[in-house]
Nucleic acid binder design. Structure first.
Lengths: 227, 227
DNA sequence: CGTATGAGGTTACCCGAGGTAACACCAAAG
DNA sequence: CTTTGGTGTTACCTCGGGTAACCTCATACG
């Protein structure tokens, strides 16, 4: 029974099971089945369900494990005493470096399988929600916005997170440029370069909005527009 | 073989089935089961599978239907001959108005169920990819960015789309403010207000970062528009 | 010593969702 | 009257999440 000494073996097993789940997800991506995870752990499903109530529970435990690290990095990056632009670039780079280092893990963190338990219409995974909150808090603390400061901070937190998420995913898949270039491109966007840049002379052909040439070497993957 | 005349009854049935699917999704949200859709249509599964190869096919057909409208709106908003800031606000408002008008539908469009067929690691749903492409094209055509223009346009297209997606989802769920305020908040972000705003004197408390709830002002908030 | 107890583990099952096979019906074309 | 092609059905398969019931072994205890 008990002897619940310091390291109850139960907790230890839990960690081992999470390790196994981790391996499977790192191999199969999110959407790994409970069967697969159990197999990897060398056991069968019911045990998994004894330790984690359901799939959601397991995934959540697993997510929290990894989230801690990511969140800590972001938090640290947000707290550095730098000029704002450098700080923002630091945060962007932190995130991109993280997803670059362990794509599968971060795909799992950022793109929960929709069956993972989140209610319907949950756009940002918990890990990202936390990052968004972190950014919002930083904005609220560090930036002087007049009235509406609260609303702006919240909105920007989500917005920036979503921006980096979408851009980061695309970058991971296509690798259209170096990490530094990506950081710069996003920071430029946040820095109002879109507002500041001059107009291009309206070229002759006004119509045909989508998909024209690929400039430089971007080689965009085409996507049939049409309707 | 098929006189493929204009109104082949087959196509008509297809549309009726899509109508039914539409109704179900509008009611149950994405993740509606094929059984449910078949039932709503007053028929059984195999028929569904005869018209649309699989669930992915059905969802895709359904998505294309709705995407057309959304995409057209966005495209139109992007082509208006306005000052850039007004144009951007118009696009933001167009998107927010759309998701506000038919939340379930746009949730379906923007948050595919992961089993809907997209490959693993597909962050942006097809509809959103198209919007991103549209924005990228507009940037490429209208904005004068030096070298790297292509890369910047692509990145910003995704980034802006992700930003609006995340912020829009949050706005839909929480309704923290009016649509206009949301548009302004996002446009401000894009306009470099984050860069321009002054520093806040570093308060004593270093921070308790997370904590999601609504920060003081979110609700009532004050009057003044930004400045 | 025998036994109760509780972790660790197993087999075998239920259910719902995607997807398919085989068969039945009905209208028009020949 | 028969072929053809679309509409429809029932019944089934598979796979994944989740559960019930049962087994087993070490240990604490009378």
């Amino acid at each position: 029974m008990t002897g619940i000494g310091s390291g109850s073996g139960t907790e230890e097993r839990r960690q081992q099971l999470l390790d196994a789940a981790d391996r499977v997800i790192r191999r199969d991506g999110p959407g790994a089945s409970m069967n697969a995870i159990a197999a990897e752990a060398g056991i069968t499903k019911p045990i998994l369900y004894r330790h984690f109530t359901d799939k959601h529970g397991l995934y959540q435990a697993l997510a929290e494990r990894h989230t801690a690290g990511l969140l800590a990095s972001v938090r640290a990056a947000l707290a550095r005493p730098l000029e704002r632009r450098d700080l923002v670039e630091g945060v962007l780079d932190t995130y991109l470096a993280a997803i670059e280092a362990r794509p599968q893990v971060y795909r799992f963190l950022t793109h929960p399988e929709a069956g993972d338990g989140l209610g319907p219409g949950s756009p940002l995974a918990p890990a990202l929600q936390k990052i968004a909150d972190e950014i919002a808090a930083a904005v609220r603390h560090q930036v002087d916005l007049g009235a509406q400061a609260g609303l702006l901070a919240e909105t920007w937190g989500r917005g920036i997170t979503g921006m980096v998420l979408a851009a980061g995913d695309w970058w991971l898949e296509q690798r259209p440029c170096s990490r530094e270039e990506m950081v710069t491109a996003l920071a430029d966007l946040l820095w109002g370069r879109l507002a500041a840049a001059g107009h291009r002379p309206v070229a002759a052909g006004t119509a045909e909005p989508a998909a024209s040439g690929d400039p430089a070497g971007t080689s965009a993957a085409g996507s049939g527009t049409a309707g």
